[in-house]
């Protein structure tokens, strides 16, 4: 069972977490084309590589960001949203 590290609560089995998906910037809903909007809503980046993802530690309801290499199955670091200096 893989381990994941919550920046506030520490390293735990991945069963204590929920994965939301990759951070995807929302295009301006008032300005973008229908196609651009549909791509945002329905398409996901399937390429392997390092992705910034939303994860939640459910016992504490802590949302954070994980930088995860989906090709090597390795988490580089985790931090609270906005803390990625």
């Amino acid at each position: 069972m893989k381990l994941m590290t919550c920046p506030v609560n520490g390293t735990r089995p991945v069963s204590e977490f929920v994965y939301w998906g990759e951070i995807r910037p929302m295009p301006d809903p008032d300005a973008c084309s229908d196609d651009e909007w549909a791509a945002y809503v329905f398409n996901r980046n399937g390429a392997p590589g390092v992705k910034k993802e939303w994860w939640c530690h459910t016992p504490s309801n802590t949302w954070f960001i994980a930088e995860r290499d989906t090709e090597k199955d390795f988490v580089l670091r985790t931090y609270l949203y906005g803390d990625d200096r």
């Binding site: 939303w54 939640c56 949302w63």
Partner: peptide, 20 residues
């Protein structure tokens, strides 16, 4: 719903708090 709303406010940082 509570979890997702918590995530949204983590992103939006509106001046409000959510309690379940």
């Amino acid at each position: 719903v509570y979890r997702e709303l918590s995530r949204l406010n983590t992103e939006w940082r509106l001046d409000c708090g959510l309690v379940n």
